[in-house]
Simulated assay, not measured.
Amino acid sequence: MGVWLIDADVLAGSRFTVSALAETVAALTTLSSERCEPWQRPWLATHLPAFRARLAEDPFNRCWLRAAAESRWTPDFVCPPPRRQDHRFADELARQRAVPVDTARADLETTWGGPLPCALDVPDPADRVADLVEWVWEHTVRSDWPRRRRIHQADIVSRIHRLGQDGWAATVRELCEPLEWLGDGRLRINDHQRPPRDLSGAELVFIPTSARRGWVCWDLPERYAIVYTAGGQLADAGHATAPGHATVPVPGSVPVPGSAQGGPAGEGAPEAVARLLGRTRADLLARLDPPKSTSQLAALTGLALGTVGDHLKVLLDARLATRRRAGASVLYYRTDLADRLLAPDRTGHPARASARQPARSPAR
């Protein structure tokens, strides 16, 4: 199996980060495979015809995408991990274009499984891939990148909270399969029969995306990344409009592990509670399982930080929410009273305040 050897220094210096390039590669993978989760279907239906037309004129990219799907091995240079100074998609794409020809050809040969066929034997493979990635960014991702970025940032807050609560082994295990912390500095990344790779002195980053499944990538020898499916819920306004197209849901909305809410915003709050508290306040209360920070709630809902803070103060005063510090963040969570208020009875109506339910830990 594929194992990374990660010492304490690498683990201590690791970080979660957002990557516009990784998100675009995730979108490219979805378009190429034409397979997606149910919430991505409107987005896929909107952009697939143009993508098919783009590939029909591009035998090079059509060939390597097919090979990557069959071998389940994407060329390494397609998605190099971001550096700390990469603040824009253009920064990441420029490094992708700058990959030497020999390196790109070697990566393509690994994906193809041997000498390159005529379709892949081109003088500028990195540029050709970058042209396609840039097309996917401009036509399918860029218009709703601010919203996707907020979803990914919110996911990172949840992961950091999970890390502080349960440690690395539990946090890593939930990122993607077959990722697993084996102990003794060993992290299993996949089932490939390859020699262990020592990451001593390298940087390790974790990147959320809207991909159906995760992957690993690297920029040898100094940078490694684990790309995983972001968790989180879309707000009522969580729709992105592509130029010239109808409004469609943004891909990437999946339940946060351990969350009691699995649907769109507001589904966790019964209508009667929304009438009592107001829709926005009820929605915020429904989102507080697992606990979330003010910044995370703002990212998920699109509300201003001050607005979220004002609503949370009302919920605190009403004893429907409480808070505690977790590292550098202050996390808000529901009280037992709020849980009883939100829990539906067998008729589908909110439970009466007098209903008794087993107590649970406020932070799961």
Rank of each mutant, 00 (worst) to 15 (best):
T171C: 14
R194T: 15
V248S: 08
P249L: 12
A154C: 07
F206P: 00
L179T: 13
L175I: 08
V205Y: 01
V250G: 06
D184A: 15
A240K: 08
G201N: 09
A225W: 00
S200Y: 01
L187E: 01
R197I: 13
G201K: 12
D166M: 08
I160A: 07
P178K: 12
V205L: 06
L220F: 03
V172R: 10
Y228I: 00
G238K: 04
I156E: 00
C176F: 01
L220V: 14
T241F: 04
T171A: 13
L175Y: 02
L234H: 05
A170I: 06
E177D: 11
A235F: 01
H245I: 04
L220G: 10
R197E: 08
R188A: 14
L204A: 11
V227C: 10
Y228Q: 06
T241C: 10
H192G: 09
L179V: 14
Q165H: 10
L182Y: 03
V216I: 12
W181S: 14
I156F: 01
A211Y: 00
V248Q: 08
R173H: 11
R159M: 02
I226Y: 02
W168P: 04
P178Q: 07
S158K: 00
R159I: 00
G238M: 02
G167P: 05
A211R: 07
Q233V: 09
T209E: 00
E203C: 08
L199K: 11
H245W: 03
R173E: 08
E222C: 10
I226L: 14
I151F: 05
Q165A: 11
R213I: 07
G185V: 05
Q193R: 15
D155G: 00
R197T: 15
P195H: 04
Q165P: 06
L175S: 13
H161T: 11
L234K: 05
R188N: 10
A237P: 02
P221D: 08
G201I: 08
P243C: 15
V216D: 03
W168I: 13
I189A: 10
L175P: 09
L204D: 06
I151R: 14
H161S: 09
G231Y: 00
T171W: 02
A246Q: 07
P249N: 09
P195L: 07
T209H: 00
P251L: 12
L175G: 14
S200I: 03
H239C: 11
P243E: 09
P178R: 09
V216S: 09
G244T: 05
N190Q: 04
A211I: 03
